[in-house]
């Protein structure tokens, strides 16, 4: 169970607005998050991951307190180990596909399986600059999964994929999410693209 109750000031075109989220996500659930641009969807994910600290709030993951501003508890991202798929992929330009996964995990069998799921085996020795947009996005997803996260945060993870690759990948991911018993939060601009994958939704206005 993920329990979130946060308040974070966001900069807006004219002044600022406050992002208030009070929500619980059942363990193992897959939630799609959508809403207008600038509403704070990415900020919510980054706050859960520990990259951004809210002014006020609490984040509790399966009885572990990740954040409690009142008690000055703020577990660093390295200890939260939440898988994160960045909107800009955030791939490491100096590493090949294989090195990305080896940087995240030492489990060779898991790496082999991830490469097969992402259909990136033929590109294992390629650096990101030699991959297409879709391949880069798949690598970003595989890297986040490499650490076998219990919480997976995905920011527009399928935006660069063609409909066929998206559908195949989503089918594979569904199996993986169940296997990992991961609680997944997916930010999307197109909620319908996740039909069949997600079982909950959160709208941020």
């Amino acid at each position: 169970m993920i329990s979130i109750d946060i308040e974070k000031k966001l900069k807006a075109y004219k002044g600022q607005h406050i992002l208030r989220i009070k929500q619980q996500f059942a363990a193992g659930s897959i939630t799609r998050i959508y809403g207008p641009s600038g509403a704070g969807k990415t900020t919510l994910l980054k706050t859960i991951a520990g990259f951004i600290e809210p002014e006020k709030g609490k984040i509790i993951i399966n009885d572990a307190v990740w954040l409690d501003t009142a008690s000055r508890i703020n577990v660093p991202p390295q200890k939260r180990l939440a898988g994160f798929v960045f909107q800009d992929y955030a791939l490491f330009p100096n590493m090949t596909v294989l090195e990305h996964l080896e940087y995240a995990t030492a489990d060779k069998e898991w790496i082999r399986r991830l490469l097969a799921i992402g259909k990136l085996e033929p590109f294992a020795t390629h650096k990101p600059e030699y991959l297409s947009g879709g391949q880069q996005q798949r690598l970003a997803i595989l890297r986040a999964l490499a650490i076998k996260p219990k919480v997976l945060l995905m920011d527009e993870p399928f935006s660069a994929l063609d409909p066929e690759s998206k559908s195949t990948l989503i089918d594979e991911l569904k199996v993986l999410f169940e296997e990992l018993k991961a609680t997944v939060l997916i930010v999307t601009h197109n909620p319908h693209e996740l039909d069949g994958l997600t079982n909950l939704e959160l709208v941020i206005n």
Partner: peptide, 15 residues
Amino acid sequence: LPVSLAQASYSLGKS
């Protein structure tokens, strides 16, 4: 360098 590069590394548990 984009801030997300370091953040991605932190999310993998790296110091």
